[in-house]
Every structure is written in C-alpha cells, then in structure tokens.
Design a protein around this nucleic acid. Structure first.
Length: 469
RNA sequence: GGCGCGGUAGCCAAGCGGUAAGGCGAAGGUCUGCAAAACCUUUAUACACCGGUUCGAAUCCGGUCCGCGCCUCCA
C-alpha cells in the first residue's frame, strides 16, 4: 500500500507518488520569530514531524526545508520596542524555537533558511515577474503581483474572486493597488521600518511576506517539488499567493501535494497570539508537563481535525505514557528470563506492525497508530502474566517499540533510570522488614520512598522501584 | 455574503456502507501482608435532529439546529 494523503489542492485523499522514486522534497512554513511559539504553532510542527517520519518509515528519503521568517511587520515592530537590532531580536526567538522543538522531539529539518539571508533570490523572482508582466510598481512605490494576469489564481483555496469581501479596514496604501486582492512582492521603505531596508531595482524597501517562501523553496528544492505544508490558516492567502507568484515566475507547477493541519482550540476558540488565549511550551512546562506529554497530546488527534487542548488531556497523556513506561520496564525484566512464547509473540508483533503502519500510511492516522500500540501493550502484558512471553520474545517486543518510536518519538524504550544508593537502601530495608513480617516497618520505608519521589512495587521476582509520575 | 470543517460514552478520540478501535476516568473482581503494576468484567441498542437511498448507514443524499475556522498578521 502506498502512503496516502489528503491533498488540499484536489480536496481528497490520494496516493503519494514522489517526483523522484524514493525521494521526497518537503517544504514546511516555519515560525515568524518575534515571540515564543505556542502549542498551536507546535501542532503544525509536530504534524510535519510525523509526516516526515512516516515517509521515512515507508522507506522514502526526505529532504526537508523549514523557513524562518525574520523580517515582517511584527519582528520590526517588536525589535524596536525591545530596543535592539532586528537581527539580535530575531536570534533570541530562533534560539528559543530550536530549544522548544528539541523538547518536543521534533527531528530537525535539513536546513532552516532565514528570509533575511535570501533577499537577492527574492529580488530575482520579482524581476522575473516584471519581465513576464505579472508585477507592477504602484504609486506608493511598492511592487504588487497582479492576480488579474494569473487566471489560475484561487485554485488552492477555491476562492472565487467575486465572492471576496475586502477587509473592513483598507489601509491607505492599498488604494494604490490595481485590485484589492493583489498582494505585495516588495514593500516600499517606510520610516517606521527604521534601519530595516534593502536596495532593489524598485527602490529601498523590504520583501512582501509570501515571496520568501517562493524564493527559499526554489533555491533548496527546485521550482517544482513534492510536498508543502502549513497550518490551514496559511492556505489563504499565503499559500495561494506563493503558488501564484512561483508558477507565474517559473512557468511550471510549484507543488504536487499541499497538506494543511487544522487548528488547536482552547475552550472552544482558536489558540492565537492576537486572542491572547495561548500557552507557550514554556507555560505548559511550568505547569509540570514535559515536551513528551505535549507531543503525546498532539499525536492523539488526526492532524486535519480541530484539536481541543486542555491540561486535563495532558494529565491523561502522562498516565498513558506511564503505562507504556511500566510496560517497557516489565519487558526488560522478563527479557532476562528463560525464553518462552517466541512464535506467538512474533506473530502478534507482525499483526501489530501492520496495523500501525496501515494507520499512518492512511493520511497519518496517528490515533489509529496509538490504538495499535495499546492493543499490543494489553496483549503482551497478558502473555507475560501467564509466562508466555519471556526472554528473547520480550526482546523482540522491545525492538518493535523502538520501531514504533521512529515515528512516535516518545516511547523512551532505552531510557534507563539509575536508582540512587540511598533509594536502593530503603528498598532493601523495606524488603528485609517484609521478610521478617514487620509490616509497619516496611510501610514506613515505603512512605519514606514516596516522600522522596519513588514508588516501590512488589513482583514475583522481588521489589521494583520507579520514579513517581 | 463566499469558501471550508465539525457535532461519536463523564472527558479525549478513531472509524467514513456490513453491524461502535484506543486512551483517560468510574465501578466490581483476580493477584498482594496492604498496596502498586498487570489482567478480567462492566461503563454508547448507539454515533446532534428529521427525512431519503440501500438487504444493510455513525458512515451516502437532502433539510434543520448548534459550534468553529478562513476571506485581515496568524500554525
């Protein structure tokens, strides 16, 4: 079965066929680095991470580019407010972004080009657009793309231009445009931009928003590549405009598959900076949840479905992950025992992996993949209970979990936690008391462990300690 | 007004024509010195509502009611 995706361009799920067999060019819209990203932003990046990992899981080699928007109205405005240069200001948030995606176990892109490093490439595209008659310089000194010259405009968002309602607030400079829907390729210098400006054949100024993605995707992936992703809110106008200018400039198809993730909502409303109802990853961590829990919550809902974020779900994630951790711990214990049940275990694993893979390859059904994981956990726990999975068989289950984790990236199969001597001493003390049937003393030791953040569990093979979750 | 998405158990969430995955929570049980973990059982005669198509619909079609998103910077 080939991997299948819902292509926004055609509005249905279709088989994914890479342009070059075995290889995939992937471009994902990255953050505008003017602030810390919030969980809603990370939903997009985690979705794209799962996409990339799934493509690899299916045997494809992925070349992934994510841009960093480091010049726009907000970065300029806020850097001035902070009293530092644009470069210094955006660098802070680039650093924060990389730290956050590390916490979320997102596999880094092959390159993270910044807009400010690609001004010449953008100017070159605008020059081509002028040459071909798609661009014009307006009275306000800015350069715009004329959608009237590009009949296919609207094919991604399925926008009928007649149905478009101009925004209530029309900025004065927009009167200069030939059509309301025309968009800026190059913005003429404005005093409010301070020192932020570049020279161009059309005068000093700065690039429009969409042109950076056209320039950087072409530079790193070619004029025509496989997949372009972003949040659904980027579909229009950003991606529509990007596609129009790229196809107009290059005279070829821009992207074969457009994938968009749905929003994340909080209390029924879209999480967004402007609404103020957002949580950064740091906010969530302050409440005691790690990137692992957040990733798990994001994995729980299909990417095209609106996700309802709540701390209640973070709690559920923590418990669910603890269940997986206990499972891993138990497999490691059982692995050292005499071999048992290998054929039956292998058969079960084969089925499990098939279910897991089928779910992911069907338009990234992560919920289904998680279901396959938990079905396996339950069945193998049952087998271990009756001694029908031990030794090498347990080792194979661990291998299967490592395999799943290539995509899930939150199973922690090989994270071993050392038990401090002080803790081990208390465990031994309790065990000695139990042997002597001195249960009050045993319970005192257990309570002491609990105070120190450790939980002790008795098994047929002796006591086991683990950190309290 | 245009375009689009959704309403499935207490909560989250799959399924998209063949008789309701999974997680969390809750209740009971097995095991245990007691626990914990694990396992077992129970927890939606039912998928917003009303019609229709079909041997058969949560799944397709029509309508109604709610909720949300985009059309303006936004993942």
């Amino acid at each position: 079965m080939p991997v299948r995706f819902y292509n926004t361009l055609r509005r249905f799920v279709e088989d994914f066929v890479p342009m070059t067999p075995g290889k995939v060019g992937l471009y994902t819209c990255g953050p505008t680095v003017y602030n810390f990203a919030h969980v809603g932003n990370f939903r997009a990046y985690v979705f794209e991470d799962v996409l990339k990992r799934t493509l690899r899981y299916a045997g494809l080699q992925v070349y992934h580019i994510m841009n960093l928007t480091d010049v726009d109205d907000k970065t300029i405005r806020d850097s001035q407010k902070a009293g530092v240069s644009l470069l210094e200001f955006t660098q802070r948030y680039k650093d924060a972004f990389f730290e956050d995606i590390r916490q979320l176990r997102i596999d880094p892109a092959d390159a993270y080009p910044s807009a400010t490093d690609h001004i010449p490439e953008m100017i070159e595209i605008i020059r081509k657009l002028f040459e071909k008659g798609f661009a014009y310089k307006a009275e306000d000194g800015s350069v715009y793309f004329s959608i009237a010259k590009f009949p296919e405009y609207g094919k991604l968002a399925h926008i009928d231009l007649d149905g478009m309602r101009p925004g209530a607030r029309v900025k004065h400079d927009e009167y200069a445009k030939e059509s309301v829907a025309d968009f800026a390729l190059w913005k003429a210098y404005d005093e409010q931009d301070g020192p932020v400006a570049w020279d161009s054949p059309w005068g000093r100024g700065r690039p429009g928003w969409h042109i950076e993605c056209s320039a950087m995707s072409s530079k790193y992936l070619g004029n025509h590549f496989d997949i372009h992703c972003g949040g659904i809110d980027n579909m229009f106008p950003h991606h529509e405009d990007e596609m129009a200018q790229s196809e107009a400039a290059n005279g070829c198809t821009f992207v074969n598959y457009w994938l968009h993730n749905a929003h994340l909502i909080v209390d029924g409303e879209k999480m967004s900076k402007s609404a103020g109802n957002f949580f950064t990853l740091r906010d969530v961590q302050q409440r005691g949840y790690g990137g692992r829990e957040v990733r798990w919550v994001l994995l729980g809902t299909h990417y095209r479905q609106t996700l309802n974020f709540s701390f209640r779900e973070c709690d559920a994630a923590r418990v669910a992950l603890a269940r997986v951790d206990d499972f891993v711990r138990r497999l490691n214990e059982v692995r050292g025992q005499a071999d048992a049940g290998e054929p039956a275990t292998v058969e079960r694993l084969t089925q499990s992996q098939a279910d897991f893979r089928a779910s992911l390859e069907d338009d990234l059904n992560t919920s289904g993949a998680l279901g396959a994981l938990f079905d396996l956990v339950r069945d193998v726990n049952r087998m271990m209970d009756s001694g029908q999975c031990a030794g090498a068989a347990a080792g194979k289950v661990l291998d299967q979990l490592r395999d799943f984790d290539k995509v899930l990236a939150c199973l922690d199969v090989d994270r071993e936690e050392a038990v401090p001597a002080e803790i081990q001493a208390l465990v031994d003390e309790r065990q000695a008391a139990r042997k002597a049937k001195d249960f009050p003393r045993a319970d005192t030791a257990r309570n002491r462990l609990l105070e120190l953040g450790w939980v002790v569990e008795d098994t047929a093979k002796g006591p086991r300690v683990k950190r309290k979750r």
